[in-house]
Design a protein around this nucleic acid. Structure first.
Length: 399
DNA sequence: AACTTTTACAACCGCATCATT
DNA sequence: AAATGATGCGGTTGTAAAAGT
């Protein structure tokens, strides 16, 4: 059966088209388009897909995990000839792979300068910061992390960092705190289960979460605490985060916090006293419940009661810096919380207007918000901190 | 112990971009 | 200027290992 192919105003038999395509050495521009269509027709007739020809003939080429033998062949070939010419490389190297697969294997796995193993705290912090600026530009992020590939960073982001940010109420896309992401229900329901803990201190712990930079730092440090406490300790010592003189949150007096915090799990491996910053870390979604309910004084082993917690924590104003030059209370003086059954009301009437800053480290070199040098940076950071709770916030909405 | 679910990561795929013709 | 090829990039998938039941 003869196949008729309409081409422009003329119809050709398929055999005619094949003949012309195979024998025509040079095409005039006016004919190029016709022959391009011809090529497509032939491809279609032969069952090939439309569009650009694939980078390799898929037939007979291996896919899936690479074997050590294949790795060796590829490595040996590149050591001699260098990377590049990926289309012809597999054939020359004796590999039944497409060039794309070879390039990926080399750049993501076999390259000698690739750093293997866990991401360090500094690397993780860098990734988070760069992602907040660059978004999902993995190659751009990888370019600033020597030895790490874009694929590796992307995977690490998706499997570790992204989930952790979500868990801790931070939008992994915008890096802004999101109350709807925060697992407030577990935090509050746990608290509400124990009426003795219905006090301002608990809510202050929750409130501390609402400082986005503290959230971010807490998130990172908490995960590190769980996954690699040694590196955390090293980092804390380097950045003096455990030095009470650092006054990371000046409104919370070290004397009021030392006792419970020294016994908190974060510091069990360290003799270095911790500050309120770490207490706020404890207050995130992963550590909040247990740590808020299990605080005890180190000497007496006496568990803290509601009243002692109140004594220790009540009346501590929490502020979020919303602009480089001013601070405002996170909650208005009229902010109220109400328990599920309405039996407990909370307010922050005692909040004093003493302005404080929130000098949370923003990068591994311990740059603090207050010490940023340029207006752009200030603006950038202050935009990160724009976050407030509506006065009409109702806890029941989160339950 | 067996099975299911979750996690981690290597690899694939399609599209975009750049360089060459 | 347009077509074509090579390479890079980012989203997604497949699968082995680990964790949970």
């Amino acid at each position: 059966m003869e196949v008729i192919v309409p081409l422009g105003s003329t119809s050709y038999t398929f055999s005619q088209l094949v003949f012309q395509a195979s024998s025509h050495p040079s095409l005039t521009p006016s004919r190029k388009l016709h022959y391009h269509r011809l090529h497509l027709c032939i491809s279609l007739f032969q069952g090939k897909s439309m569009g650009r020809t694939p980078c390799c003939d898929k037939n007979g080429l291996k896919k899936g995990p690479w074997t050590p033998e294949e790795d060796l062949k590829l490595t040996n070939y590149i050591q001699i000839h260098g990377p590049g010419n990926w289309r012809t490389l597999p054939k020359n190297a004796g590999l039944q792979r497409c060039g794309k697969s070879c390039r990926l294997r080399w750049t993501n796995y076999l390259r000698p300068d690739i750093k293997r193993g866990r991401f360090s705290f500094e690397e993780e912090e860098t990734i988070i910061q760069l992602h907040s600026i660059l978004g999902n530009k993995w190659s751009a992020i990888a370019a600033r992390l020597p030895g790490r590939t874009d694929n590796e960073i992307k995977n690490y982001w998706n499997t570790h960092i992204r989930k952790r940010l979500l868990r801790n109420g931070i939008d992994p896309v915008t890096h802004a705190p999101r109350l709807d992401f925060l697992d407030l229900s577990s935090i509050l329901s746990s608290t509400l289960c124990n009426q003795s803990l219905l006090n301002v201190s608990s809510l202050l712990g929750t409130q501390a979460l609402l400082n986005p930079e503290l959230l971010r730092l807490a998130n990172t440090l908490l995960s590190l605490k769980q996954e690699n406490p040694e590196i955390l300790l090293q980092y804390l010592q380097q950045n003096q985060l455990c030095n009470s003189q650092q006054n990371l949150v000046p409104s919370l007096q070290p004397s009021q916090l030392q006792a419970p915090i020294q016994n908190a799990s974060t510091c069990t491996t360290s003799n270095v006293p911790c500050t309120s910053t770490l207490s706020q870390m404890q207050a995130n979604g992963e550590g909040f419940c247990s740590n808020m309910t299990n605080f005890s004084y180190p000497n007496s082993q006496e568990s803290l009661t509601s009243s002692t917690l109140n004594n220790a924590f009540v009346s501590q104003p929490i502020y979020v810096q919303c602009s480089p030059n001013s601070t405002v209370p996170l909650l208005s003086e009229n902010s109220n919380f109400q328990s599920l059954d309405g039996s407990q009301n909370f307010n922050f009437d005692s909040v004093s207007p003493t302005p404080i800053s929130s000098p949370t480290p923003l990068n591994s070199s311990s740059t603090f918000i207050n010490s940023v040098s340029t207006d752009d940076e200030r603006e950038s950071f202050s935009s990160l901190l724009k976050f407030e709770i509506p006065e009409s916030l109702d806890i029941n909405d989160f339950m």
